[in-house]
Design a protein around this nucleic acid. Structure first.
Lengths: 337, 337
DNA sequence: CTGAAAGCGCTTACAG
DNA sequence: CTGAAAGCGCTTACAG
């Protein structure tokens, strides 16, 4: 059942049916009524693939996110979807699972499907293939909007957070609470959040005249198990830290897992501040201090930026901005003595 | 840049380029080499929209899930994606946000986009519009696979869990622990899990000769706040229950939120068993007993069922089965006296 | 207010 | 091994 079948059934041309469906151009009221009657009766739904080919517009946005099981990203998606829906855009969600190969393949999918735009949290800031494909997308008229993570040289639009200031403020709270031996479980330094949160950490220590110690800066990749091991390394140092700055929600969880297993008491044996809040822990009033921001809002803003681009036929205004963050102190930054 | 441009650049016909790209039919080795050279050089990616229109196959599966911020569903999606990727299918993820209107619109999208199939956790078992659209999809040759929730009359294939047995076993553990005053925070009775878990609960009580009390059966909709309020109602009864069966992970969380706020101690003042585990609570060793199953595996199985249907050109074998569940006791089902 | 016709960018039997 | 041509199901200037 296609548009020609519908047209034949009524005795008009497919052009007329098309006009009625799309509410474009004139159609006699009676004809229009008949058309919708037949459509209704046969439950005809126009073929969007054909429509897209003809109009050269898919009205769909690709969303590429590294980890769908991370609540931060599900909130982002949720925000994007909300705004997309209101504006009658479909979203094609693609989870890269923090794997570059998958990310590359998805970028090809975006190109192949001729999606209207792509919103992406790229895994790495320096991966040349992702960068090249994103540039190529823009060249082919498919706007790119970044969320939270960046690409080399800041050439794309995007919605971020001030990681440096956030980390700085957070670590400062640890210092204010009397800590001098402050460790960091880092994020990947090939990502904007990983890189910048480390900068904020260093800046806070330096201003407080605390010497930086390599031993106190352990690598991480925003994954629970990696952070678990990082915590283990830290706490087995001959001179262990008294406080830890965990660079993401997953990092915080890995850290908590280790502390829990070893029965090391938060706020008593060790202090902790994390980046990004953890909803479930709030519900059960498990108190960890965090630097937080509204991820859903960040998703909404990203989609709005995309709509802006789309409205201006892809013209880039180079809009890049941060959503606000806040430091939420719940006590885990202190030691009760 | 389209296939004709590529063809012209080399001096062959578009048919030849198409054959080379799709590795179908013969193409002289030298011609093939030249073609890929040019494709590489211009970063040409074939237009999948045109291809789909021509082949009448999108190689994409629609996935409609009610709540992306629920870890149960993100695991399902994760399992579906894994198997889809291995088999070179794209997935179009659509979050209905437990809203029927959105679900209906998405089903139209699936139809309109002529997706190859749809995997859905329908919000309600009895919604006539969803049911009609699913039937229509099957009629148009788009296979439907259900995950976890069902549609009236069990007319579709799907992957579920034995909710009755699971709930029965779980509640039995409460009874074994000495409880007689056992409440349930229900799921929507218009959904298979909601309905069946209630049946399992009743069955366990009846077999133990415990009278069913209406007061002990409070409604719920698998949402945190609803369950929070349900818990409040239960604990303010003149004769409150000593144990609660929470019908989903979100239900458990709402319950925990209330208990936490009121400083009611789990395993001391009240017992609890929930349906579906909560990953983060495991990490911090917050002990709640649950009936659990492997959601990711359930997603994988659903996608495999879909592949099976697709391979048999949509022929329905009426495969419906359950993934196994297990009861995990961590102490919250008992009262320490 | 309506229709004929070209075009969107592919694929694929068919003929050679 | 390759090309001409029809077709997938729409949209949209153009003409009337």
């Amino acid at each position: 059942m296609n548009i020609d079948d519908i047209a034949k059934l009524i005795g008009v041309s497919n052009a007329t049916v098309s006009r009625a469906i799309n509410n474009s151009g004139y159609v006699k009221e009676e004809t229009r009524r008949k058309i919708f009657e037949v459509i209704e009766k046969h439950q005809y739904v126009p073929n969007a693939v054909a429509r897209s080919l003809s109009t050269r517009d898919t009205l769909s946005i690709g969303v590429i996110i590294p980890d769908i099981e991370n609540e931060f990203f599900s909130s982002i998606i949720s925000g994007i979807s909300e705004v997309a829906e209101q504006n009658h855009y479909n979203i094609h969600f693609l989870g890269s699972n923090e794997t570059l190969g998958i990310e590359h393949a998805f970028l090809d999918t975006v190109q192949g499907q001729r999606l209207s735009g792509v919103i992406i949290t790229p895994i790495s800031e320096v991966d040349p293939i992702t960068k090249a494909r994103l540039i190529h997308l823009e060249k082919s008229g498919i706007p790119v909007v970044l969320v939270d993570r960046d690409i080399d040289d800041a050439i794309f639009e995007g919605v971020f957070v001030d990681n440096i200031a956030g980390a700085y403020d957070g670590v400062n709270e640890l210092i204010k609470a009397g800590h001098r031996k402050i460790a960091i479980i880092k994020g990947p330094e090939t990502s904007k959040p990983g890189k910048e949160r480390l900068i904020g950490y260093k800046k806070a220590l330096e201003e407080a005249n605390i010497d930086l110690s390599c031993e106190y800066m352990v690598p991480g990749n925003f994954k629970i198990m990696h952070s678990y091991k990082g915590t283990e390394v830290l706490l087995n140092l001959s001179d262990p830290p008294t406080a830890i700055f965990a660079c993401s929600n997953m990092t915080t969880l890995g850290c908590l897992k280790y502390l829990t297993e070893k029965k090391i008491k938060l706020g008593k044996d060790i202090s902790l501040i994390g980046f990004d809040d953890i909803e479930i822990l709030k519900l059960i009033d498990y108190k960890i201090s965090v630097i937080d921001r509204d991820a859903k809002q960040q998703g909404r803003e990203a989609m709005r930026l995309m709509l802006e681009r789309l409205k201006n036929k892809g013209e880039k205004k180079h809009t890049r901005f941060n959503v606000p963050y806040q430091v939420i102190l719940r006590g885990s930054e202190r030691l009760d003595r």
